[in-house]
Deep mutational scan, measured.
Amino acid sequence: MDPFVVLVLCLSCLLLLSIWRQSSGRGKLPPGPTPLPVIGNILQIDIKDVSKSLTNLSKIYGPVFTLYFGLERMVVLHGYEVVKEALIDLGEEFSGRGHFPLAERANRGFGIVFSNGKRWKEIRRFSLMTLRNFGMGKRSIEDRVQEEARCLVEELRKTKASPCDPTFILGCAPCNVICSIIFQKRFDYKDQQFLNLMEKLNENIRIVSTPWIQICNNFPTIIDYFPGTHNKLLKNLAFMESDILEKVKEHQESMDINNPRDFIDCFLIKMEKEKQNQQSEFTIENLVITAADLLGAGTETTSTTLRYALLLLLKHPEVTAKVQEEIERVIGRNRSPCMQDRGHMPYTDAVVHEVQRYIDLIPTSLPHAVTCDVKFRNYLIPKGTTILTSLTSVLHDNKEFPNPEMFDPRHFLDEGGNFKKSNYFMPFSAGKRICVGEGLARMELFLFLTFILQNFNLKSLIDPKDLDTTPVVNGFASVPPFYQLCFIPV
């Protein structure tokens, strides 16, 4: 058959498939802009700032609406009420993970971030239990974070109060905490193996944040037939998995079943207990991918939040002064901060919360999916439909947070200066898919920041009023603009 005829037939089939998918069930789905064949609503979305586009569309179609990214149908949730109703009140029905062709290629359905069903539930339950087990290797997770915080302070001392970009050092600290939990080992910041790991993690975040990856996920045929950065992403992930597998083999040879040292040991012990169960989800494949998931999810998000926190503290020296006064009063100079201190430091706690609220790190979270046909607000959402959640619409709700575009710790303080919780605080998402490392991340943010401010004054290279804190939105995360500062020993 003539190649031209084959091409026309293929394009015609794709067009018909697109029209059929977009028209099927439209009477039951939430409203939304009319999609174009094949490309859907992509032309109506700013790929570099999806969150802003969703906010604009919500003003037209309401808090629940339908979009098509290519052939992929998505239902968008915008605003606290619908997000709570879906992710919390109907948590089980909305607990699936959205379709990610690239991740599915890399992870093969294993791990904790992109798995679904029984596998996801069992691996998540085990990971939560293990991360909360403060007795691994007779050292609590808090001990590990405190140790890394001391190392971080010593690295900052080496800058000798000269101007520096904190990106690298602030990236090393949370990565080392995860390494300590998974591998029972922290690395020197100049260790070549550690630097290679950091390089792969950072490069992957840069790649994932590009519009090209959005295109690959919406048109998965590209993955096999086109060159691009997605190939580098898959190569980096394969490198990390190979490295983790080597460490798993080392653990198998040296493990003491009665004295687990780290996450890998705990997983291997669980595998041993379930070795007679042919349906067990505790396999080497799941261990390797879960460890890679924890490394990827637990490094860049925390380091970016820390980097943004220091920029905001530079911009608002009056806030920094209040935090340091609270540190001096509650902790002093002669001991290290600990998590028990947080309950006695409402202002510092409010500042950490406000940093996370203000920066809105992951504006749309990772997409969910419905696990069955769901009736939601008089609409029928078919099983498997991807759910896109606007966390921006919750964290920047102007009824809950007056002047949401302003950095103001009073958003989390009552009139008496006591810490005030808010149900709208969802930087880790909400419901059954809430970030498994939430507790660890909150511990790291509090301890790293208090250790830094206990030991250093922060000095800006320019007038604080002239510092730009506008986030650089890159399609996946909101990151701070480049800046330098000086760490002046107190």
Rank of each mutant, 00 (worst) to 15 (best):
I359P: 00
L440K: 02
E415S: 11
N423S: 12
H251L: 01
L366Y: 10
C266F: 11
T34Y: 11
C266G: 08
I182G: 01
A441V: 08
I112R: 05
P481V: 07
S303N: 09
T290W: 05
N418W: 07
L67H: 01
H99S: 13
E281P: 14
N398M: 10
N418H: 14
G109A: 09
L268G: 00
G228D: 04
K118N: 11
E155H: 13
L485A: 13
K235Q: 14
P63A: 06
F126A: 03
M345H: 01
F451R: 14
G437E: 02
D143G: 09
D265H: 02
K420P: 01
M198D: 02
I462V: 11
A309V: 05
I39S: 03
N196Y: 13
T320K: 09
F451Q: 10
D256M: 08
L14M: 10
A149Y: 04
N398Y: 14
E85Q: 09
R307M: 08
V288H: 03
A441I: 01
T283Y: 03
L15A: 11
T385K: 00
G296Q: 14
R124F: 00
A238S: 14
L131R: 02
Q454L: 00
I123C: 07
R125G: 11
R125C: 04
L170E: 01
G296Y: 11
L9I: 15
R206D: 09
I264S: 02
V479N: 15
E104M: 11
S365I: 07
D46L: 03
S58D: 03
L15N: 03
L287P: 00
L458T: 03
P220T: 09
W212L: 06
F69Y: 13
G332M: 00
E122G: 07
Y379H: 07
D397W: 02
V8I: 14
D468I: 15
Y68W: 14
S95T: 07
L237S: 09
H353I: 01
G296W: 15
N41R: 00
F94D: 02
R97V: 03
N204A: 07
V248M: 05
N41W: 00
S12R: 03
S140E: 06
L156R: 01
I434D: 13
M198K: 07
S18P: 08
L294W: 04
T469Y: 09
Y308A: 09
R186A: 05
T167S: 14
L245M: 14
G416V: 13
E444Q: 00
F100Y: 15
D256E: 10
Q214K: 15
K275Y: 08
M339I: 10
N196A: 15
E85M: 07
R26H: 13
K160S: 11
H316T: 06
F194S: 04
L287G: 04
D188Q: 11
S280V: 06
S18M: 15
L54C: 08
A321F: 12
V153M: 10
P317Q: 10
A161I: 06
N455G: 07
C10V: 15
Q192A: 14
F100D: 08
C151P: 02
L388F: 06
L201C: 05
C151T: 09
W20Y: 08
C266K: 13
Y225Q: 07
